[in-house]
Amino acid sequence: MPRRAPPGHQRGLLLQSEGREDEAREQWRLAVAMLETFDGAYESTLGELRELLAAR
């Protein structure tokens, strides 16, 4: 079964689509902090989140 993206990741994408960039970035930062505790289980999602955060 594929791993699902964390709620903060998805919420951030929705906020970004509404033009709420600062709120989106905060959701992504929270998602990164949570996912880093899973010892590499979400490495592809972490990579995407890090790219989103670096894109500013």
Rank of each mutant, 00 (worst) to 15 (best):
E18Y: 07
A55E: 04
G47H: 03
Q10S: 13
L13G: 04
E51T: 05
A5T: 08
L13K: 13
R11F: 05
L52R: 15
S17W: 11
L49W: 06
P6Q: 08
L30T: 13
L14I: 13
E48A: 13
E36C: 08
E18I: 00
G47L: 00
R56L: 06
P7T: 03
A41R: 11
P6H: 12
Q10L: 15
L52Y: 10
A33M: 09
T45P: 01
L30P: 01
Q27L: 02
V32T: 06
L13Q: 15
R4P: 07
A55R: 08
E21A: 10
E51R: 12
E43W: 06
L35T: 04
L46H: 05
A31P: 06
M1F: 09
D22C: 01
A31N: 06
G47T: 05
G40P: 06
L52V: 01
A41P: 00
A31Y: 01
G47I: 00
T37K: 15
Q27P: 03
P7C: 01
L13I: 12
E21L: 14
E23H: 01
L53H: 06
P6F: 13
R25M: 06
L52G: 00
L15M: 13
G47K: 02
R20P: 01
L15Q: 14
R4W: 07
R20W: 02
R11W: 05
E21F: 04
S44V: 09
R11C: 03
S17N: 13
R29K: 15
T37D: 07
P6C: 11
E18Q: 15
G12F: 01
R3K: 14
E51H: 01
L13R: 14
Y42T: 09
L53S: 04
E23Q: 09
Q16I: 01
Y42P: 05
S17M: 10
T45K: 06
D39Y: 11
A54M: 00
E23V: 00
G19R: 11
D22Y: 03
L14F: 11
R11E: 15
E43H: 07
Q27K: 09
A24Y: 03
L49Q: 10
S44Q: 11
R4A: 15
M1K: 11
G12I: 03
L15N: 05
M34R: 14
L46Y: 05
R25E: 12
Q16R: 15
E36L: 10
L35P: 04
A31D: 12
A24V: 01
E23I: 00
E26W: 07
L53P: 04
L46F: 06
Y42K: 08
H9A: 14
R20V: 01
P2S: 12
L53D: 06
L46T: 05
A5D: 11
R50P: 03
W28H: 11
G19S: 06
